[in-house]
Each structure stands twice: as structure tokens, then as C-alpha cells.
Design a protein around this nucleic acid. Sequence first.
DNA 1: CAATGTTATATATCAAGTTATCGTTATGCG
DNA 2: CGCATAACGATAACTTGATATATAACATTG
Lengths: 163, 163
Amino acid sequence: MEDVLRSLGFLCLGSRMKRIGEQLQADTQRVLDRLDVRIQSSQYPLLAALDRLGPLPVGELAQSLDVAQPGVTRSVALLAELGLVEVRPSDDDQRRRIVSLSRNGRRLVDQAKRDVWPSIENAVADLCADLSGPLLGQLAAIEDRLAATPLDRRAENAKVAAS
Amino acid sequence: MEDVLRSLGFLCLGSRMKRIGEQLQADTQRVLDRLDVRIQSSQYPLLAALDRLGPLPVGELAQSLDVAQPGVTRSVALLAELGLVEVRPSDDDQRRRIVSLSRNGRRLVDQAKRDVWPSIENAVADLCADLSGPLLGQLAAIEDRLAATPLDRRAENAKVAAS
DNA sequence: CAATGTTATATATCAAGTTATCGTTATGCG
DNA sequence: CGCATAACGATAACTTGATATATAACATTG
């Protein structure tokens, strides 16, 4: 069966990148699922932003992640529900709500940085190894490689290789 | 403000590709809005598939676009509502429902192929021109270029240049 | 040939992004 | 000072992907 998106080339690059991104996130989710961490892979960038940049108001968090503000509001509500982040009003501006990692959030991030993120990073690096040349070709290679060996399998292998 | 996704590199490649893809789709939408048919840019790949491959049952359409079947069912229902595609049961298998372009759908695709798709393709090609090297670098370049000149502006310029 | 299993599609629900808009709090100027 | 405007975050509605499951038609086999 012809892969139409691929045949269309530049015309559908947006759909195609979105499709690959979703696949990567889904695979990453499967890696995270095995490690009894109960949040969606899409929440990690927010936690990583707080880890890297420290406590931030909602708007700046949105900027640093380059997503729209309502998305951050929703994620923060979810993570606060889970006790991973805390929210407090700013001292000098009652409109701002400062988001920070809670004690549990701090622990989760530290654990992830130690136990999980390295193997994901290795798996993706493996996926993208030795790619060069035009973008469309690299994307096609990534699609083919993912179809052959999903990211979560690559993460396992990386862990085995490291041990 | 630091771009956290970019700093995280391979770790958040999925989120990042999704983000770029969404941006491209949104920009493309703005180009397509100039056609008086008000359908979403995300529907065009399905129309293009029918154009390239001819009438297809729902499942094969899903395969050729590499999306899950329920997504196709929904898109087809929407496009049928708009009178752009037609659905008829297969002769030899009453489970299959064959989707094809209607007269109006045919007209829309022909018009798009003539008037719109080329300028989108040129705009994206322009966006990706002279990119080479590692994937992450190319993605960063695309993000920077998009921020500097959105895709719809590039499409305009391409049209001017062609005339 | 009836029971059982398989396949194709539809439906329901969820996830995570978007835009538009609203209420509240700051700010700035006449 | 007081009011108009701007900024911040929350909420609503929508989009477009996903998965899980139900339904109906076909296939197989005992």
C-alpha cells in the first residue's frame, strides 16, 4: 500500500511530522509505563522546564515550552492534582501564579533523570544515528526504522548494552 | 527565554516534531483559507489519497495515510457531509464501504492541484532549502525560519515570484 | 449448516494541542 | 484620584490524533 503522505513530499510535511511525533510519544509512553511512573510522557517537558529554570509563572512556562497558555494551565492543574507541582500566587503581582516542583515532583524528576531519561535519549539517538542529507529522506528513514524496531525495544537494548 | 524542548535534544524529539507539525498545519490552513471551500488542511491528505489511488474502502484509506481507522471514519463522514466524497457499499463484501471523490470533490482537488498545492509545496521547499546535517540542527533551523517568516508569507512570495 | 471466530466499520471516550473570550489585577495617564 | 487599557490566567469550544469496544458481515470448521 502506497504511503500517500510520503509520496506527497513537502505538501504534507506538517501532517507527517505530527504523525512521527505522535508515534515517538506513544513509544516513549510505553518505556515510561514499565517504570511504574503514572504520568503521560507529554507532561515531562513541563517538569523538565521547572527543573531547568526553577519556579515560573504560567505564562513564562508556556513561552519556554512554546505551547499556548491554556495547555499549560491544564497540565499544571493535572500535575498539581497528582501532587507533583505546587502553585502559589506571586507576592508582587496577584495575577501571576508561580508553579514549582513539589517535594514529590522533585523526587520524580531526579529519578527520571537518573533511571529513565538516559535510556530514552539513547534510544532516540540510536534511532537517528548516522542520518544525514535532506530532511524528507531522514524522515523516511526514521519511519522505516521505527516500523522495524519501535523505540521501546531500542530503549531495552540500550539498557542491556549499558549494563 | 530558553527553549526547553530544544535544550532537551533527543529526549523530547516527539513533542518537538509534533509542535513543528502543528505549526506547519496551522500555517498551511491560512494558505488554504483563500479557497472558498472551508475544509481543514488536515482533510487534504485524504482527498489526495483518493485522487492518487482511486476509490478505496475505509481500512485501506487508513493504511495508505497511516492513521488509525476511526480517524478516517470521522473524516469521511465530515467530507461526505460537505458533499466532497461519496460512500457506497462494496458489491462483493457488505462490510466494506468504498469511499470515492464526488463530482464536487473532484473539482476541489483539481482546483487545489492547480492553484494551491504548488504554492504550498514551494513554500515548504523554500523553508527546507539547503538544509543538511544532523536532524536536530535541521529542526532548529526550521523553527527559526518559521519564526522569521511564516509559511503563508512564503507561499505569497512564491506566487509573486512565479508570476 | 450451525457455531464459532475473524474482519471491517462505527461509536465512544480520552489526550493534548489550538483559538476566543472573560474576569481579575496592574498600570498609566489626564 | 479615577478610569481606560493592558496583562495574566481560567474556561469553553473545537480539532485531530489515539485506544477500546460494539456491531454486523463474512469465513471456517466440526
